[in-house]
Design a protein around this nucleic acid. Structure first.
Length: 164
DNA sequence: CAACTGATTGTTCCT
DNA sequence: AGGAACAATCAGTTG
């Protein structure tokens, strides 16, 4: 009884499409892009429709960073609860309850992830440079040129939380 | 067996 | 400039 949605696959239609973004229920999308886990190649049936295994995933927002930690704690207090929605709701509620100061550390981490994501995108672009589907490989943000392979950020972990 | 679902908000991407 | 889609999670459920 739960999954009889049928409907389109997971397109934006699921998002209720039009309609103020007030009603949460973003709907459901995504999902059709795993293909790994159990068997690397597994059935290897989608060789043609292969997606971008190298495509970097979007950087987790401050909320997600907070959720990652929140989830861990939530499980400790609710080891029986296995509903992802439960943590989501609880986390969302708490998140709104937090002040900017509390979110600051999470935002900072999220910001770092974003920077990393940009780098990953560049590397990904280089890989895709061969696969120019569109007529013009010179897309828009493709111009973002970066040193080929020189600047190797050794480790820029700048976490300064001393006094407390 | 594998893909999809729920639920949260934020960020990123495309039009 | 705004809307649409996806980011983690995890077990359950459907095809």
């Amino acid at each position: 009884m739960k999954g009889e949605k049928g409907k389109g696959v997971v397109r934006r239609e699921t998002r209720e499409a039009l309609k103020p973004v007030d009603d949460r229920k973003v709907g459901k999308r995504k999902a059709a892009l795993k293909a790994d886990k159990s068997s690397k190649k597994g059935t290897k049936k989608d060789q043609k429709a292969k997606k971008d295994p190298n495509k970097p995933k979007r950087p987790a927002s401050a909320f997600f960073v907070f959720l990652e930690e929140f989830r861990k704690i939530y499980k400790q207090e609710h080891p029986n609860v296995k509903a992802v929605s439960a943590v989501g709701k609880a986390g969302g509620e708490k998140w709104k309850s937090m002040s900017d100061a509390e979110k600051a550390p999470y935002e900072a981490k999220a910001a770092k992830r974003k920077t990393d994501y940009e780098k990953q995108m560049v590397a990904y672009n280089k890989k895709q440079e061969s696969t120019a589907d569109d007529d013009d490989e010179e897309s828009d943000r493709s111009k973002s040129e970066v040193n080929d392979e020189d600047e190797e950020e050794s480790g820029e972990e700048e976490e300064d939380e001393d006094d407390d």
